[in-house]
Design a protein around this nucleic acid. Structure first.
Lengths: 245, 245
DNA sequence: CCTGACCAGATTGTCAACAATCTGCAAAGC
DNA sequence: GCTTTGCAGATTGTTGACAATCTGGTCAGG
């Protein structure tokens, strides 16, 4: 095995990727219409694959589809980002717990995850906040994959694709994010999962989500989100892990 | 306002619906290939909408897509059903808790939910186990909608569409399911949510999922699922609600 | 007998043209 | 003046034809 799998993305997925890139670049903004024919012409392909790509983005919640009226880039609110993180918190706990229950979750599988964690230490990555976020989400995805819960990880991966886009279009600043603290949290998380310390793992994951959202909330222009963790959105479901980490 | 909204399903959604029906009827079975041209010919339309409908089912996990090789009906295992229910357990708790935190979740919204619950008492529904399951899932969906968490409810609704199909193709028998007990559980659940008794609601929801899965496990031909609730899959994440209901 | 290139049929992927629908505006009716 | 109707342009929805790809088998060469 010397060759890595070919990318093998369908044209539709490539189209979706391009649109996502345009959103991250700021070329495309919330409320903008996505006109199939225009995009097809720009990419030099026909409307079919473009249409399919737009549907993929619609399934992710990045664009809104209205029957016979086309697709519009979503205008997410900060609450949408919160909702995404609440889903990640919940399903992530599910995945981590299940991963720790599997006999198969031993050394070899963990090495791949460790590799992704190491990539976050790369100085080239540390410079770019977007690359950092990408590496971060990939690490988390690999960790969740250990669970073998394909439906759960599919939803988690979908939210992972949403996050950079939402963060960008909302103008959330997160440059002050402490990279070494982030990596340290992930090391704690990975170690806990590897050692199957359920409660420590749950606490570490919860801690990471809280820190990330907390950082976003700080940088967010509006002041109404200061008491973000006091919002009922984040409470009452997973609190029992607090006293265990 | 004398007219009800038109159904307004896209052709693709109608196609997906037909394929789901074929699955429920047994006309289509796990492993069967879905050939775009054949389905298009049978339905008297062209391949485009059929293709789109198949993609919708793929997003739901009902069919598996392989690049350039077409779509095949999934062959779900009982573990897949378990995974679906674990997701519903987790996200359902999230939705219910958030619904109970909203000021707006007052009488008028609850009336619609109550209506759906009453529909389950309809003798015509009680006769047909499939209709019962459908009414049940609709009630749950309406309840979750109260949360206003669109991403969470979208995933929940997707799992709701999966359940009847998976139950059918796996040959799970659930006829012995006690309808009055089911309705009674739902009444408890609705009452708890309405009164905003967080812990009672969580316990009731958890109880419902456990009973449903337990019933399925009983009817399932294989014997390996007797200790289903001892599986780590169902443990360690939401257990703290046990001592509160 | 085994290996690998090649071919034919089936099926998906893409395309460009056509039909159906929506939007906004302008004109007609009250 | 206000509402309603009817149109024109823009855009999506659908279609049938064509191109690319995959599958399985056949056949030549070793």
């Amino acid at each position: 095995m010397t060759f890595e799998r070919l990318p093998d993305l369908s044209t539709a997925e490539l189209v979706a990727e391009r649109i996502r890139e345009a959103l991250l670049q700021g070329t495309l903004r919330p409320g903008d219409r996505l006109i199939e024919a225009d995009i097809a012409a720009e990419l030099g392909i026909s409307r079919g694959p473009v249409r399919e790509g737009i549907r993929l983005l619609a399934a992710e919640g990045i664009v809104v589809l209205r029957r016979n009226r086309g697709a519009v880039v979503t205008s997410p609110t900060f609450d949408d980002v919160l909702e995404v993180y609440v889903v990640r918190l919940g399903l992530g706990l599910l995945a981590l717990n299940h991963a720790m229950s599997l006999d198969a979750a031993s050394a070899p599988e963990f090495d791949d995850v460790e590799l992704l964690l190491r990539r976050m230490r790369n100085p080239g990555v540390q410079g770019d906040a977007l690359l950092m976020m990408d590496a971060d989400l990939h690490f988390q995805s690999a960790l969740f994959d250990l669970s073998g819960l394909t439906r759960v990880t599919a939803v988690l991966d979908q939210t992972a694709r949403d996050i950079p886009v939402f963060v960008k279009v909302l103008g959330i600043t997160y440059d002050e994010l402490d990279h070494s603290a982030l990596i340290e949290r992930h090391e704690r998380l990975l170690h806990a999962v590897r050692q199957r310390h359920r409660d420590a793992a749950a606490a570490a994951w919860r801690d990471h989500v809280r820190c990330t959202v907390g950082e976003f909330a700080r940088g967010y222009p509006a002041a109404q989100f200061e008491g973000i963790f006091d919002l009922p959105l984040m409470h009452h479901v997973f609190d029992h892990h607090d006293n265990l980490g």
